[in-house]
Design a protein around this nucleic acid. Structure first.
Length: 584
RNA sequence: GCGCCCGUAGCUCAGUUGGAUAGAGCGCUGGUUUCCGGAACCAGAAGUCAGGGGUUCGAAUCCCUUCGGGCGCACCA
């Protein structure tokens, strides 16, 4: 089973083929003129253009080939050559009652996909800049997994660069490295205080290094020593990393974002030298201005593409080096068919360099997809990269707290508050807050910049996460009531009346929304769909009687339909990383 | 200088890869509760799709150009 449009596309495609026209011209989609028809096919106009024929005549020949099909209640040619189609209610009923897995067919084979959507640096507080990668990547992972791919989400933290040299240098200069070395990581308070120490110390060290070239040089030297695993640098680093990972895991968990792999740049260090030697042996890597580089420019390039630096002149490695080595490791350990990076759009040149280097060295086979699914910058209301009023970045945990606070206040205003005990209320506020944040972010198209608006991220009305949760909760509440009244409707005969039709048609669009979301690594298509479905149900709910319908057969039919909507909503929301509370 | 991205209603954003009358949310105006949850529903006002040219049956979408904004260009990540 597929979507309704896909189902119809096969039939119309066959009709095109019968006229010796390409079957893919028979692509059917939901009509954008619902007042005229449910579905439309534009292929006749394309075919006519190619063959230099009259589009209406082409359409007519296709329509003739379709006319003996009894699933259509209307077949019309309109305008320059649109084929407008309606399906019979019997077809809709058949479609919905034989639906499996919401109409989503699993991908033809189980294939391994590696998704990279983390990237926070250790020893730094996570801020709202990390939000998009986490939310989009996690959703893409859930969606692809639902489709049947084997997915691996990797946090790929930044733990091997000069920022570590700065931080370690500061501890050594102040002779305070014992704070780190002797820390008992099993003690939560110690971990917490170390995190706070990093948060103060790193900006201080970083600022000092930028202002003082001697300190910067010292940081670079320490970084090289660290990368050679010299002591005590390496031990200090290990502890810093362990502490940071604890904090990072807590924040990601709080956000409801999951990873399968908690790896960092340092983990691929041992792959680097063999990789560089290999590139040298292949005459791809060479020494330029003291650094070991690989050319990635190609004939026909419109822009200048600088070479990728594999080793700095001081022997240190850069993030391009570790990114390449990470691909070496991923190929070796997981043999993926796709590696997808959900990383800020501003990194596009970097990824182009890395991917070209990898292709040139034939580290992956040609049929492995390497994609940088970039996302736009998060700007403030002034259109510039987002900063808080104090000029700093907003911590992720602070954002979550603010959203929870607002959700709690909203819940207390509602009539339900008194019936719900403290613990459940906290849980509901949390789920609502996370849904608000995620939906506000995910509904934006991935690659364009977007404005970080706190009010929008913590708003609960209109096109928001809480709205779609609310609609789902309301349906579930209805179904619970039916159950309490011992009404059995699971095997009800589905009756498609005027009011129900839009809802059934919409249910049949879910696989299309999922296909779009997967194809472009773009969960916003799923957001769009979920919101439309929620809106359609809300309208349905307001205009017809469901549980209170007097005609028993119709009541049971509508309960069945409602159950289908609720189940789909809950599943789809899960794919966006949201959980539906029992009530709210 | 070279290159990439963007400009759609007062604000924040969609627009299924060239289709019919460009859609949502917020805000604004007005309405809806003896009946299944009002975080809701219904209706309305609001657009030179930045400007100009081109391609064609047909353009927010493709090409050229002007203006405006963002970003990236070898030893940071």
């Amino acid at each position: 089973m597929t979507s309704i449009a896909q189902d119809l596309s096969k039939i119309v495609g066959a009709a095109f083929e019968a006229q010796n026209l390409p079957a893919d011209l028979g692509l059917v989609r939901a009509s954008d003129r619902p007042d005229l028809a449910q579905f439309q096919c534009n292929g006749a106009m394309v075919a006519a253009k190619q063959a230099k024929k009259n589009p209406r005549e082409v359409a007519q020949s296709v329509v003739d080939a379709l006319s003996n099909n009894d699933i259509f209640s209307k077949i019309e040619i309109a305008g320059p050559g649109f084929i407008n189609l309606n399906v019979t209610d019997a077809y809709l009923k058949e479609y919905l009652t034989t639906l499996e897995n919401f109409g989503v067919e699993p991908t033809d084979e189980e294939r391994q996909v590696v998704l990279d959507y983390g990237g926070p640096n250790i020893a730094k507080a996570m801020h709202v800049g990390h939000l998009r990668a986490a939310i989009i990547g996690d959703s893409v992972r859930r969606i692809m997994s639902f489709k049947g791919y084997k997915t691996l989400g990797d946090v790929h933290m930044g733990d091997w660069g000069t920022h570590m040299g700065m931080l370690i240098g500061d501890y050594m200069r102040e002779d305070e490295q014992d704070i780190v070395l002797n820390a008992d990581l099993k003690d939560a308070a110690t971990v917490q205080s170390l995190m706070e120490d990093f948060a103060v110390r790193y900006p201080k060290a970083s600022g000092a290094a930028k202002a003082n070239s001697d300190l910067m040089q010292e940081a670079r030297d320490i970084t090289v020593k660290l990368q050679d695993k010299e002591e005590p640098y390496y031990s200090i680093w290990q502890k810093i990393r362990e502490v940071s990972v604890e904090g990072m895991k807590k924040t990601y968990e709080h956000l409801g974002v999951e990873f399968d792999l908690w790896k960092g740049e340092a983990d691929v260090h041992d792959y680097i030298d063999p990789m560089v030697d290999d590139l040298k042996a292949k005459n791809l890597a060479y020494i330029s201005e003291g650094a070991c580089v690989i050319d990635v420019a190609e004939d026909g390039d419109k822009k200048e593409l600088p070479p990728l630096i594999l080793k700095k002149s001081d022997g240190g490695v850069m993030y391009g080096t570790t990114d390449c080595a990470t691909i070496v490791e991923r190929v070796k350990l997981y043999n993926p068919v796709k590696i997808v990076y959900i990383v800020d759009q501003r990194q596009s040149l970097h990824f182009e360099q890395v991917f070209r280097a990898i292709r040139k060295a034939q580290i992956v086979s040609d049929n492995v997809e390497l994609t940088h699914a970039g996302f736009g910058t998060m700007n403030g209301k002034d259109g510039k990269p987002f900063k808080t009023r104090e000029g700093g970045v907003m911590r992720l945990e602070d954002l979550i707290s603010m959203a929870i606070e607002k959700a709690t206040a909203r819940l207390n205003d509602a009539n339900l508050a008194s019936e719900i005990d403290e613990a459940e209320r906290a849980d509901v506020a949390y789920k609502v807050a996370i849904a608000a944040i995620k939906f506000a972010d995910l509904q934006n198209q991935r690659q364009s910049d977007y404005i970080f608006d706190l009010d929008r991220l913590t708003s609960f009305e209109g096109k928001t996460g809480p709205y779609v949760l609310y609609q789902t909760v309301r349906i579930k509440s209805l179904l619970d009531k039916a159950k309490a009244q011992n009404i059995v409707f699971q095997d009800a005969d589905l009756i498609v009346k005027e009011e129900d039709r839009a809802l059934v048609l919409l249910l049949g669009q879910f696989p299309d929304a999922l296909t779009l979301a997967i194809g472009n690594y773009a969960p916003h298509h799923l957001c769009e769909y979920i919101f439309k479905l929620a809106q359609a149900f809300s309208s349905f709910y307001g205009n017809v009687h469901i549980l209170s319908e007097e005609n028993e057969a119709l009541r049971n039919s509508r309960l069945l339909l409602s159950q289908n909507v609720a189940a789909l909503m809950e599943q789809a929301l899960k794919l966006l990383g949201m959980t539906v509370p029992a009530r709210m």
